[in-house]
C-alpha cells in the first residue's frame, strides 16, 4: 500500500484491529514483526530517527503536560524537533491563530477543554511541517465547529502536498476526507481502495430508483433488456446499473418515447458504513 504526497488514507477497523499499532510502526516506535515500511523514503527499522523526524503524529491519547502553558508545550516540542527559535515562534503563532488557540496559549493546559487539548495536540503534530502526518482519531471529543476546523485543516494539508493517514471510527469523516480507505481487521487489510470503488466492490453496482407519476404496470418487463430490476412497487422500481452513465440516458430515452411519466431518477445512497460492515462480515466468513 502506498500513500503519495497530497493523498489522505483513512484506516478503518474495529477496536483492536491494529490501527494504532500501524501508526506506532509508522512512527518507528514499534518494530514490525515482518514486512517493510518506508516513511518519507526512510525505512522504519533501519532509519528510525529519520522516520520520527519526518512524521507528525497525533496519538490516540495526546497526553499533554498539564502544568505547562500551551505556548510552552509547543515551544518544547518545536525545540525537540530542532526548529530554530525565531522560526519556531513564528510557526507556533501561525498555527495557534489558524486553530483559534492564540488567546488560550499563555494559559495552563490543565485549564483547557477536551477540544482545546485535541487542537493543541494537532498543532504539535503539524509544528515541524512534516511531509507525513499520522492522525489517530483527529476529531474525537471535539464540538462540531472545532471538528470542522480540523477537517478543513486536513484538507488544506492535503493540498500542501503531504501524505496524511487518519485512523478514525467516524465513517462520514473518512468518506469526506480520504482518497483511499483501508479496512483493517486482526492486523490485516481486508479491503482497500477509493470510497466509490470500495462501494462497487463490496456492495455491487450502483442502485438506481425510478419514481413515476403513475402506476408502473408491466414496466419492469419492458425494460428488462436494459437493466436488472431488483424490486418494484406502485409507481416505483429499483434496478442495478453497472455503468449508470451509459444505461440511464438510454433508459430515460426509451421511457420518454413510450410516454411513461418519469418523476425522478436517483441513485440510492450507499453509505461507507454498509461497505465497512459488509467487509467485516465477509472477512468473518
Amino acid at each position: 500500500m502506498t500513500v503519495s504526497a497530497g493523498q489522505v488514507l483513512a484506516l478503518l477497523g474495529p477496536n483492536g484491529a491494529g490501527k494504532t499499532t500501524t501508526i506506532r510502526m509508522l512512527t518507528a516506535v514499534l518494530k514490525p514483526t515482518r514486512g517493510t515500511a518506508l516513511v518519507a523514503g526512510y525505512d522504519v527499522v533501519r532509519q528510525p530517527d529519520q522516520v520520527r523526524g519526518s512524521v507528525g503524529v497525533l496519538t490516540e491519547n495526546h497526553g499533554l503536560y498539564l502544568r505547562s502553558s500551551g505556548a510552552e508545550y509547543l515551544d518544547f516540542f518545536g525545540d525537540l524537533y530542532g526548529i530554530p527559535a525565531p522560526r519556531r515562534r513564528r510557526r507556533i503563532g501561525e498555527l495557534l491563530e489558524r486553530f483559534g488557540m492564540a488567546e488560550a496559549a499563555p494559559r495552563r493546559i490543565g485549564e483547557y477543554s477536551k477540544g482545546m487539548r485535541q487542537k493543541l495536540a494537532i498543532i504539535r503534530a503539524m509544528l515541524h511541517d512534516p511531509p507525513v502526518l499520522l492522525l489517530d482519531e483527529p476529531t474525537s471529543a471535539m464540538d462540531p465547529q472545532s471538528a470542522k476546523l480540523v477537517r478543513d485543516a486536513i484538507v488544506d494539508l492535503r493540498t500542501d502536498r503531504r501524505a496524511v493517514i487518519i485512523c478514525t471510527h467516524n465513517l462520514a469523516e473518512a468518506e469526506m476526507l480520504a482518497d483511499t480507505i483501508a479496512i483493517i481487521r486482526k492486523g490485516r487489510i481486508i479491503a482497500s481502495g477509493p470510497p466509490e470503488s470500495l462501494k462497487d466492490q463490496l456492495l455491487g453496482p450502483a442502485l438506481m430508483e425510478l419514481r413515476l407519476a403513475g402506476p408502473s404496470n408491466g414496466l419492469a418487463e419492458s425494460i428488462a433488456d436494459l437493466v436488472t430490476v431488483l424490486e418494484s412497487g406502485d409507481g416505483w422500481l429499483r434496478y442495478s446499473a453497472r455503468r449508470p452513465q451509459e444505461t440511464n440516458p438510454r433508459l430515460l430515452n426509451r421511457l420518454g418515447r413510450s410516454d411513461v411519466p418519469v418523476l425522478t431518477l436517483t441513485e440510492v445512497p450507499r453509505s461507507l458504513e454498509s461497505v465497512y460492515l459488509r467487509a467485516v462480515e465477509e472477512d468473518e466468513r
Binding site: R24, T27, V29, D49, Q50, R52, G53, V55, V57, T59, N61, H62, G63, L64, Y65, F77, L80, Y81, G82, A121, R124
Partner: peptide, 12 residues
Amino acid sequence: RHSLEPLLSSPL
C-alpha cells in the same frame, strides 16, 4: 499520564 508516546515519537 499517556504523555510518553508523543515524546517517543520525536526524533530523539
